[in-house]
């Protein structure tokens, strides 16, 4: 009986290991946000909207207040975007937040600080986030798959940064 159990567990392990690289269904955003218009065409730096990227561990998703500062006026020429502008204004009027969905979700066992990487180390956002700034529709999953520890360690080794467990794990 015991041996059968062991076998069963091993089998599950093998199948499980094979399946690890698969990913979930992806994420849909409330508004099909166009990064390119903002960052390439209008040349906004990333921290215009991700306000805390140089100050805090998290970069921050833009609150409605921030969006409406520009989109109060009809600055959008693209008619296809009109309904989404209306969505922003509706949220602003109701005083609610746009329910952005976080794409990059780190495990809770990891302390990751944007300030540490973007400000102190002076890394470009694209090092981890890839070409998200040029995307015209929000991606359903992270463009660059940099959320696993291999990537972290590889980069830390390359750049001769510390990779002690205590620096990130908590």
């Amino acid at each position: 009986m015991m041996r059968r159990k062991i076998l069963w567990v091993c089998w599950c392990g093998i199948i499980g290991a094979m399946g690890v690289p698969c990913r979930g269904a992806g994420t849909a955003q409330p508004i099909p946000f166009n990064h390119k218009i903002h960052t390439v065409d209008n040349e906004f730096p990333c921290d215009t909207c991700h306000r805390y990227v140089f100050e805090k561990p998290f970069a921050g998703l833009p609150p409605t207040d921030l969006c409406i500062q520009c989109h109060e006026d009809d600055i959008t020429t693209n008619p296809a975007a009109a309904p989404h502008i209306q969505t922003i204004r509706r949220h602003a009027k109701e005083g609610t937040e746009i329910p952005w969905v976080r794409l990059y979700v780190l495990p809770k066992t990891v302390y990751y600080s944007h300030r540490r990487h973007a400000k102190i180390a002076g890394l470009e956002c694209s090092v981890c986030h890839g070409d998200i700034g040029r995307s015209e529709t929000p991606p359903a999953r992270p463009i660059a798959r940099t959320l696993d520890m291999d990537h972290c360690i590889k980069c830390h080794v390359e750049r001769k940064a510390e990779y002690d467990c205590s620096r990130c794990h908590r």
Binding site: W11, G16, G19, V20, V105, P107, K108
Partner: peptide, 22 residues
């Protein structure tokens, strides 16, 4: 067993996707 393993795999993926433990 295979079915169980597949179910586990899916759950495992979900857990990986969303972090640990959530």
């Amino acid at each position: 067993a295979t079915g169980g393993a597949i179910a586990l795999t899916t759950a495992g993926c979900k857990a990986l996707e969303r972090g640990y433990p959530e």
